[in-house]
């Protein structure tokens, strides 16, 4: 068994009387890509929000061995968890560069920050061209790149991605996914939430299937692609 970066123990998330996540336990190991798939409303976003401290929850979440209960969201970012939210969360009134810069708030390693801009502009040359442009003028795909770029600028070693393919053409989605694979090879651990199960399953080492707040299936990406239940419900075949 590898080194568990994220581990949840009986995680629950409720909004008033609505239970969005009902007692789920899962883990992500160092260097893995783990996918969390499920239909709209299954509780995927709520799960990610609990991990990054954006919502209150029951149960236990630990990150790199540390219990996250009571740790403020902005401090969790400083610990190396970066959450790319649903809908990307780009600040359209800031420039591309400012969006990246804001994400370095918790960092004190000024020199490495400077090097990281270059690294990100290398991965996303289109962001470099548009760095002085207001981020609201970017296309959907570019905004997604910026969202991932920001996560990297915060020195995220653990990336939580909430439906990065949403609103993108299949081609662009493919591009984002290959880039995620590349980041993973370079050492970033990834927890990927997707409705678009097809690509997610092929990318992921392991996968959890969420249905109305409960994990109903888990396995390697390959196993689940071959699973008839998954095929019918999530792969549209």
């Amino acid at each position: 068994m590898g080194n568990r970066i994220i581990e949840t123990d009986n995680l629950t998330v409720s909004y008033g009387s609505i239970a969005a996540v009902k007692v789920i336990s899962f883990h992500v190991e160092q260097g893995e890509i783990v996918a969390l798939i499920g239909a709209n409303g299954a509780g995927k976003t709520s799960t990610l929000r609990a991990l990054s401290g954006m919502t209150t929850y029951g149960g236990r979440v630990s990150f790199m061995g540390r219990d996250l209960r009571g740790v403020a969201a902005h401090k969790i970012v400083g610990m190396g968890m970066a959450h790319v939210p649903e809908g990307r969360g780009i600040f359209g009134n800031l420039t591309v560069l400012e969006n990246l810069k804001l994400a370095t708030w918790q960092r004190r390693d000024k020199k490495e920050v400077a090097a990281d801009y270059d690294r990100i502009f290398n991965i996303f040359p289109r962001l470099k061209e548009r760095r002085q442009q207001s981020a609201g003028t970017l296309s959907g795909g570019e905004q997604q790149m910026l969202a991932v770029g920001r996560a990297l600028m915060s020195k995220g070693t653990m990336l939580l991605l909430d439906e990065p393919s949403m609103g993108l053409s299949p081609l662009l989605a493919q591009e984002i996914f290959s880039m995620l694979a590349e980041l993973n090879r370079a050492g970033t651990t990834i927890l990927l939430v997707e409705q678009n199960a097809n690509m997610a399953l092929r990318l992921a080492d392991r996968c959890y299937v969420l249905e109305t707040g409960i994990i109903v299936l888990e396995g390697t990406g390959k196993e689940l692609i071959g699973n008839p239940q998954v095929k019918e419900a999530y792969l549209g075949t």
Partner: peptide
Amino acid sequence: RAISWDKNVVPLMG
């Protein structure tokens, strides 16, 4: 300025 655009995302920037 970021908060005035979308307050909910700002904590995720640290």
